[in-house]
Amino acid sequence: MTINRELFFKEAQEKIKEELNTTDQKIILYSLISEKLPKNINELFEQIRIITDLKYPTLDQYLTIEEYCNFLLDNSLEKLNTDKKKEIEKIISGEISITFDQNEQKLVDNFSKNILDLIVLKNDLDQEISNLLKENYPNFYLIATPKIASKMLQISGSIKRLAKMPASTIQLLGSEKSFFKALKLSKNTPKYGVLYNHEILFDLNKKNKAKMARMIANKISIAVKSDLNKNNVSADLYEKIIRKKEELLNLQKK
């Protein structure tokens, strides 16, 4: 019996570095961070409004978080693209509001900057996820869209494991819990997991959503394999999906 401690450490070290540095790992980690950020941003926004509501009551109903925070910083409505300027001007006129003293203004400024920074961070992460997918897995990127593709990588762990899955598993990915539940109560098994959030399903009715989900799952399965083999098949796959969707929408109208 011989134990070469150095060899264990050397191999573990190399493998750790190699596996933590893959495209898949990056996409997975970025998307884990990115998907939690909206909640953080919303919570901070609610907190800042504890003060700013007193000066600008109901202003949050007219502006996005980003517009609102920018307005807090520059007090200007010029850049705003809204048809509600009249209403907004009334709110900020000061008729029934408090004014901020210097310290309050400073607090509000700092707070707004923090929220805006988080919004930038979220956009940067999403952009990076998109770029990584587009560069490395162009077919998967196109068929699944970045949001769904990154979520599928999260659940499966890697593109290789995704490529080994049958289309029926891809269709249900992320619905494991509901799947088990359905089996237990022997009701209809669910038709889709994270795929349910694919934008192409939005305006379809229930039955057609299931059909479309099955088709997309099939195409994703093909796309992932061709990305791993560096084949280019995207245009064709994508057109088929669009045609199918039109077909289903037409049927729905009748």
Binding site: I3, R5, F8, F9, E11, A12, I16, L20
Partner: peptide
Amino acid sequence: TQKFYLLCKERNNLLPILA
């Protein structure tokens, strides 16, 4: 395994494998 690796370095009877 990143964390486990560091633990192994501190314990002379402990060894890591990433597999």
